[in-house]
Amino acid sequence: MEHTHKVAITVNGQEREVAVPARLTLADLLRHHLHLTGTHLGCEHGVCGACTVLVDGAAVRSCLMLAVQAHGTKVETVESLSSLGALHPLQEAFMKHHALQCGFCTPGILMTLVAFLRDSRGVTAEAVRDALSGNLCRCTGYQNIVNAVLHAADHMPK
């Protein structure tokens, strides 16, 4: 039996404690142990960005971080965005602008852009494209994602 480590983290505002092997990635902790399957795994080597979550507010690739490294941190996943059926303004904008098709990449893109919009003032299309550069989307061609973010930036409470 592989040795396990105790990991205490706050996920989407809830304190969780699990015992996991050191080699478990944060992404697998979220999906397999906490059953938060909104975080998607595409490439599992840091290229596609689908697994992006916020760790202490910073957008990171959860496939490139061990669950044990997240001990003591606050993690936010795509499940944190909507509450009681009400979508986040960015999710509303994605729906309005058809910024997703198959939706596989969307959770990572949303979490990337939530951090981007939080940290940005005077959002331009170029800045949005730069922020999106670490997330692959094979359906949309990005155009509608950029439109959605620009819309959300204008309509989101700061």
Binding site: T52, V60, R61, T112
Partner: peptide, 9 residues
């Protein structure tokens, strides 16, 4: 260098 998500780590 990479992207914001990788530069954060």
């Amino acid at each position: 260098i990479g992207h914001v998500q990788t530069r954060n780590r």
